[in-house]
Design a binder for these strands. Structure first.
Length: 842
RNA sequence: GGACGUAUAGCUCAGCUGGUUAGAGCGCACGCUUCACACGCGUGAGGUCGCAGGUUCGAGUCCUGCUACGUCCACCA
């Protein structure tokens, strides 16, 4: 036991011991019912972790540590989500390169010394992927170091990365099985498209942003020369107009249904049609349908069977040649090649010149769909994409998935409604293909016909044993490399899967599905999915979908949703807002236990303010634990025997209640409550109980032995109760006098702790109340707490105080008489004080 | 427009199935070098529990309505 206990350096010291001893290693001989398996969220490896990660990962760790102490073999893996767009974007900026699949692979390529964002060096796909690996490997090391310092009891022998061979194999295998069962399919369809990333994006990755815009009132000509006026925020799509639409009940436009009108500038004849979705209240009540301005256009186009006239290309620019029957040499010539904004500006000028624009554009702000990671509004383009059925087009599947959500135990429970909300509102299947590079490739090829066109309905599939494959470098069975991209040969599917298509398989990846059936059977379905509530619609739902389709079960029994970290202005902390606090300096300044204490004090699912004050409190608690332990252990250990004194028995009885409550709280996934109860008890233990009994414990005989036993017993239990939240301080103290790790010690047992026979648990409260009154008297007299009490009159009869009178005299420094008022049960004693003791120089 | 959540002391939050004068910590004030702890100890002042009704012997707690804030979804001409 150290002379001067300290938290300095406990993180490094104990992390090293835990790794060396394998304290958190998963016992893979354990049977399924002895296992507690956690589907750890793989953090996105792009940049750095922030306090939000520290917060939510601590919550998971609390549960993991509790379950481990309950005797479970805890399967607590760690994954890194390193594939996908965030990594690509970071690699581009970090190294100053961009992926250009037409470039040949150069193994000796080195990125420029100083990245120039304006002149990114084009790089082959393979070279680009290698740089992605290089950068994510560095980041993963930094993440691991931080998580270890935080004290996560992860088994670092079970790690994965979403781009590694195992993840790619799992993702490809799961996809091939989806394909074989008809759950995955490819189709050509209008798709939301990010023009900067040049990829399709899924419904789950959309967000609305309020953007400035303007209503432009534009006249279409009827055959008789009359004008029909529409209002549009996207006049540049006029050449893509395929119809006008109004509500079938709208009397103003009923005469026009079935007739045609002519578009201004372009002179294209389009029909006037009726559809329920047209809102008579909006604008002029009649709208132009373009291919495609928004998702409503897609609905109208599909349901009214209109033609396609695309004008915006995949780069967000107007196509060089307009769709039929727009005249390429007419006004369109001025739009070709322009970006959407420039095209709008020009077309407004043209409309104004021709007189088809009525009045000035009316400025508005309106919500516009963005890719959540994107910078420019999404366009809609038609492209061939892969989908997985998720109930968006199939009521039976949707119902089944809602039912899965009801099987799942949600913590907190109200989060289920977010899931049901989302599943109920799906309007299409899950788009999983991305036109990107650093991801899991679709494991298939297409034969090329004599004209060199792919035969999409006869894809060439690899045997599962070959997985993972990269179709751009691997060759399908029965072909040779020199047949690639040749008529009569084959071509690779060029796309990669979205990152959610891989991370939706995190239980299968971590559990080594099919690669290690023995392990998988011991951990799947898992016990816990911890995650943030903003990705219920993505990660949680997609994982349920994959597991439902592949295994016919939930992927886990419980989901624990953590809240957000709010900055002091109560705004969500996020990278894009620039209000992120990075955690390392906090861990260094306050210590990991202190930061964990802050996190552990928040109930799951509750948004929590970032509060360094709570970290100070946590640090104080951890230091107090060291000091109080040192003191309690400073008394000689008493021989085996019973705890006999009423005050000591009361302490253990109260502690047994705390154990019961903490256990109940942990079982209900509410570690914050367990910590709060433990902490409250601990301060009473320090401030009252220790003060009351230390005089006796310094003495000799059975009464002293009783106190010494109670102190050690209570300390032993308290250390175990604190171990999940304060793993470093608890382990530090445990090491002074116990064998092994506190994190492998059994969770305390209330029944074994509770003293035998009748216990008056109230004596401790009564003694503490009197002590408090005496302290108040001394405090009011502004004198030292060492000032002796010359006369103490206690309200009530002697027997009420007899069990602890000696302890009380000692703790309250009663050097004079004690009298009993004999009646009344109010605990307001009369205190007469003597002379304050002489001040002692320190 | 729909759904969900939150609202308790200056701040951050407890308050479980309704039950005596509503709790903690921080901050603040006043004191104390007390033999584990100045990274300390003690004491105190702070609240008509968002608003309005209702149920009940009794409501911070249950019901209804409203308000404010937050989030998700829908709308997007």
């Amino acid at each position: 036991m150290p002379e001067k206990p300290s938290l300095d350096g406990v993180e490094e010291r104990w992390d090293a011991v835990w790794q060396e001893q394998g304290t958190y290693r998963f016992d893979r001989t354990a049977a399924r019912d002895g296992v507690y398996a956690i589907d750890t969220p793989p953090p996105t490896v792009s940049g750095s972790l922030h306090v939000g990660h520290v917060f939510s990962y601590t919550h998971t760790d609390l549960v993991a540590r509790y379950q481990r102490m309950r005797g479970k073999a805890v399967f607590y893996p760690m994954g890194w989500d390193d594939n996908g767009l965030p990594t690509e974007r970071r690699v581009q900026n970090y190294y100053g390169v961009r992926c250009d699949p037409s470039q040949p692979y150069d193994p000796s390529f080195e990125p420029p010394e100083k990245p120039d964002p304006k002149a990114q060096v084009p790089l082959s796909r393979q070279g680009f992927v290698e740089l992605c690996h290089r950068l994510t490997a560095e980041d993963e090391k930094a993440f691991e170091a931080l998580f270890k310092r935080l004290g996560l009891s992860v088994d670092w022998e079970h790690t994965y990365a979403t781009i590694d061979d195992r993840s790619r194999r799992v993702a490809q295998r799961a996809f091939l099985r989806n394909l074989a069962r008809g759950e995955a399919y490819a189709t050509d369809a209008p798709t939301l498209w990010d023009v900067d990333f040049r990829t399709a994006v899924a419904q789950a990755e959309l967000e609305d942003r309020e953007m400035p815009g303007a209503y432009h009132r534009v006249g279409f000509s009827r055959p008789d020369g009359e004008k029909v006026f529409i209002e549009t925020t996207r006049p540049e799509l006029l050449p893509a107009c395929v119809a006008l639409v109004a509500h079938p009940d709208d009397e103003r436009y009923q005469p026009l249904f079935g007739t045609t009108v002519t578009t201004p500038l372009f002179g294209v004849e389009v029909p006037v049609v009726a559809h329920e979705l047209a809102d008579p209240e909006k604008g002029s009540g009649i709208a132009m349908i373009c291919t495609f301005g928004d998702t409503t256009d897609v609905t109208w186009w599909r349901e009214l069977q209109l033609p396609v006239r695309s004008v915006v290309g995949r780069d967000g620019r107007f196509l060089p040649v307009p769709p039929e029957p727009v005249d390429p040499d007419g006004p369109y010539a001025e739009l070709a090649g322009k970006g959407v904004k420039q095209a709008q500006k020009r077309i407004v000028e043209l409309l104004a010149e021709s007189g088809d624009l009525v009045g000035e554009p009316r400025a508005i702000t309106h919500p516009v769909k963005f890719f959540e990671k994107g910078d420019r509004p999404l366009e809609i383009v038609t492209s061939r994409q892969w989908y997985v059925r998720n109930g968006g087009r199939d009521a039976d599947l949707r119902d089944a998935l809602v039912e899965r959500g009801r099987e799942l135990a949600w913590q907190p429970g109200f989060m289920r409604s977010r899931y049901e909300n989302w599943v109920g509102g799906l309007n299409g299947d899950w788009l999983i293909s991305r036109q990107r590079f650093f991801g899991v490739p679709f494991p298939l090829w297409y034969p090329l016909d004599a004209a060199g066109e792919p035969v999409y309905d006869r894809p060439l599939l690899p045997d599962e044993a070959r997985l993972p494959v990269d179709p751009t470098s691997d060759v399908p069975d029965g072909y040779t490399e020199d047949q690639r991209d040749r008529p009569g040969g084959f071509t690779a599917d060029p796309d990669v899967m979205d990152t959610w298509a891989t991370s939706s398989l995190s239980p299968q990846i971590a559990g080594q599905w099919e690669d290690d059936p023995d392990l998988f059977a011991r951990v799947f379905p898992m016990d816990l999915r911890p995650q943030a509530h903003d990705i219920i619609r993505t990660w949680l739902f997609s994982t349920v979908v994959r597991s439902h389709l592949e295994h016919g079960s939930l992927p886990w029994t419980h989901a624990m949703l953590s809240g957000w970290i709010l900055d002091p202005d109560r705004k969500k902390m996020s990278k894009s807002k620039g209000n992120v606090v990075t955690p390392m300096h906090l861990l260094e300044q306050y210590g990991s236990d202190a930061v964990r204490y802050w996190a552990a004090s928040a109930r799951p699912g509750t948004d929590t303010a970032f509060d360094e004050g709570q970290m100070k409190v946590g640090r104080r608690l951890a230091v107090k634990l060291l000091n109080a332990s040192k003191f309690a252990l400073g008394f000689p250990e008493a021989p085996e025997g019973p705890v006999t004194e009423p005050l000591d028995r009361a302490l253990l009885a109260q502690l047994a209640d705390v154990v019961d409550e903490a256990t109940r709280a942990f079982e209900a996934y509410d570690p914050a409550r367990a910590l709060e109860r433990t902490e409250t008890f601990f301060w009473t233990f320090c401030d009252d109980y220790i003060e009351l009994v230390k005089g006796r414990a310094y003495g000799e005989g059975p009464a002293a032995d009783s106190a010494r036993r109670a102190l050690r017993t209570a300390l032993d239990v308290l250390l175990r109760l604190f171990a999940p939240a304060l793993p470093f301080a608890a382990e530090e103290v445990w090491s002074w006098w116990r064998e092994g790790s506190v994190h492998r010690a059994p969770w305390p047992d209330a029944a074994a702790l509770r003293p035998e026979g009748d216990v008056d648990a109230g004596v401790l409260d009564r003694a503490a109340a009197v002590l408090s009154e005496v302290r108040k008297a001394k405090s009011s007299a502004k004198t030292s707490q060492r000032t002796p009490v010359l006369r103490l009159v206690l309200q009530g009869a002697e027997p009420a105080y007899a069990p602890f009178l000696e302890d009380l005299r000692n703790a309250a420094v009663v050097e004079g008489s004690v009298e009993y008022a004999g009646d009344g049960d109010e605990l307001v004693p009369v205190v007469e004080l003597g002379e304050a003791p002489a001040k002692v120089a320190r």
